[in-house]
Design a protein around this nucleic acid. Structure first.
Lengths: 217, 217
DNA sequence: CGCGACCAAATTGTCAACAATTATGTGTGA
DNA sequence: TCACACATAATTGTTGACAATTTGGTCGCG
């Protein structure tokens, strides 16, 4: 272990730090991201910061203008809705594919997951529910076994972190989404691609509605 | 104008050159892309080549392994099908949105485009038809005015260039796709989102079928 | 002959200095 | 006071040299 010398952060670590900053609201939309400043505050070389910012630009979280630097990208509610709309289609596809491929064990796992979600809502455990929610979506995508679709969804979700976050803790949201989540599980358990796809779409459509209500501007 | 000194290619130009090479088949799948070699052959600094390769990696055209360099990414038929499947969903969404927003002028333009496509097929003008085909897809996406969806589709198409290309010149393809294209135009002209979406999906589904037949391995 | 250690070549990765560009401030004349 | 030119500072972009890593081959040994 070295003494006195801070370990230098790699590009990936810098990118993570900036992502977390955006999610936590420390880095506000539109804020400038000066390479030298980040370099010092994170203990990384400027080259690493530069690379990280380029990566984040490709992820849609950061906006870079030639010779004028990077800033935190403003994702408007309008854009968040469009992102969610695309996600609705792609994740619907995953729902259908998953229904075709799902195994008995996976059905049992999902139903257990559904029970736990119900319990969380009963006990008012919002953070636990949010975690299970994410787990459900990930599981569906994993079962679908469509790497391309999974990648696209990952990109879309990364861009929307801020809005997803805001939404998850709105009062009443868990109660509203629970039956939709259960419907997804039901469609998959029945191995009915159409039903699963419709359930996924209905759920994400309701997310879109919530987004619209959250900020009609 | 400088004498004797080749103008140095920018990262964007290097990326274009590599893309063209892949499309033209000069750069075969799996081929190594050595930074120093490209640097010399294209008259670019190694840094520019490096940047270009990183960009192409994000586009999914190139695969990079740490300390082992970049190679032309192999897009299997299986993956091409998955890509097309996602594109079917997202472009279907664009079809529906376009049907809601299309103007009278745009309807007229599309119908003229449809007539020209018919003419190309009648005269056996494959290359002309291929160009109009692309123009139709682009027009639908433009009318839909969904930047996020447009971006996703762009990424997916970039990855598939090689397979798209192979397919376009298969005998019988134009004859098969013409009625599908006309159905898309018809759905849009009727301002019927459901019909337009279904027509787009049907068309792209037939592309998927053609992909499967092209190489069942 | 097989196999591991070691060396040399090829290639990618990093860095610190420098160049280029853009933003900011300052003074000057009408 | 306003507009404009000009100098200065802040910031990003590029480069060539060097470091680190991987690869392929060769030698020696059992």
């Amino acid at each position: 272990m070295e003494v006195g010398a801070e370990r230098l952060a790699s590009p990936a670590e810098v990118a993570d730090a900036v992502r977390r900053g955006i999610l936590a609201g420390e880095l506000v939309a539109g804020q400038r991201l000066v390479e030298a400043e980040l370099s010092e505050s994170l203990g990384a070389r400027r080259g690493a910061v530069r690379t990280a910012l380029i990566d984040l630009t490709h992820e849609g979280l950061v906006e870079r203008i030639a010779n004028r630097g990077a800033r935190v990208r403003v994702v408007s509610v309008e854009e968040a809705i469009q992102i969610t709309e695309v996600r609705m289609m792609v994740e619907g596809l995953c729902g259908a594919k998953a229904a075709e491929r799902i195994s008995d064990d996976e059905i049992a796992d999902l139903q257990a997951l559904g029970d736990r979600m119900r319990a969380c809502v009963d006990h008012g455990d919002v953070v636990g529910y949010s975690r299970l929610n994410q787990q459900l979506h990930e599981t569906v995508i994993r079962i679908a076994a469509q790497p391309v679709a999974a990648e696209v969804i990952g990109q879309l979700r990364a861009r929307n972190v801020r809005h997803q976050f805001r939404l998850a803790y709105r009062p009443g949201r868990p109660q509203a989404s629970l039956p939709q989540h259960l419907a997804i599980i039901e469609g998959l358990a029945a191995r009915d691609p159409e039903a699963a796809q419709a359930a996924v779409r209905a759920h994400i459509a309701s997310v879109m509605t919530a987004l619209r209500e959250s900020d009609p501007a």
